[in-house]
């Protein structure tokens, strides 16, 4: 059975949801820690489809199943211990990110006297040294994708010095998907969302990206995935507030 909603064209926000969900494919029985709305929809979609063993919290201290059943307790202190145990894949935001994945959420300008104070380093240093980390950037631009970040909060490949549990998986943006699967771990374009050109991504990036000869489009959602996104996980369409179009 199909509903009229399923026949509407897939929106950009929905491609972003699919790309975020893919971050947790084959992750196994670990905690998915999405930060931001579209990563949250993506993690819940993965949990309901191809990664059923994922653990998800209510955003506070409880581990909850998709139907809301509480199955565990994870107050902040236990969460920080789980991070160091490594059974987690976090998707954080980034105010700035560079070609090797160094990330900044602390401040813009000189740290000693910032032009703009942001969140602070938060848990970015501990996350990046202990469990797989991905990033979600709702507006891909040269302001975010910079040659050099103002303060390294999340650690990039050129500064990880072989840290044994360091792994940056993906960067998902409103334009496409990127990773670090190159010989020197420089950022690479993996796919562009339908409607986006490779040139557009290049122009919105403040450093030279590794771009393969052929860049595929981000995959289409299945009918079942679209139904879950539109009718079960985000029926009010809040995802469109984070990514328009």
């Amino acid at each position: 059975m199909s509903t009229p909603a399923e026949h509407d064209a897939t929106t950009r926000a929905e491609y972003c949801v699919i790309a975020c969900a893919e971050t947790w494919r084959d992750a196994g029985e670990i905690l998915a820690s999405p930060m931001g709305l579209i990563p949250s929809v993506g993690a819940r979609l993965a949990r309901l489809t191809f990664s059923p063993d994922l653990l998800l919290t209510d955003g506070e201290a409880l581990i909850v199943r998709p139907d809301g059943t509480v199955e565990g307790w994870l107050p902040y202190r236990a969460h920080l211990e789980l991070v160091t145990g490594g059974r987690r894949h976090v998707m954080m935001g980034a105010s700035q990110i560079d070609r090797f994945g160094n990330q900044n959420i602390s401040c813009v300008g000189d740290w000693a006297r910032p032009i703009r104070q942001l969140l602070g380093v938060r848990g970015a240093p501990v996350n990046t040294l202990n469990n797989p980390t991905s990033y979600w950037i709702p507006r891909h631009s040269r302001r975010v994708f910079v040659e050099k970040v103002d303060l390294v909060c999340g650690v990039g490949y050129d500064r990880a010095a072989g840290a044994r549990h360091h792994r940056l998986a993906r960067v998902v943006t409103d334009l496409g998907v990127l990773d670090f699967a190159t010989p020197d771990h420089a950022m690479r374009l993996v796919s562009v969302h339908p409607g986006v050109s490779v040139e557009q991504v290049r122009e919105a990036t403040g450093f030279e990206l590794v771009v393969p000869d052929r860049v595929p489009y981000t995959r289409e959602p299945t009918a079942a995935e679209l139904r879950l996104i539109r009718e079960v996980i985000d029926p009010d369409g809040i995802r469109a507030r984070e990514v328009a179009g």
Binding site: A124, P125, V126, T128, N130, V155, A161
Partner: peptide, 13 residues
């Protein structure tokens, strides 16, 4: 001992 901070600018500041 903590496995956090290394490689980040927390060490610089």
């Amino acid at each position: 001992p903590v496995r956090a901070g290394l490689g980040s600018d927390v060490m610089r500041i």
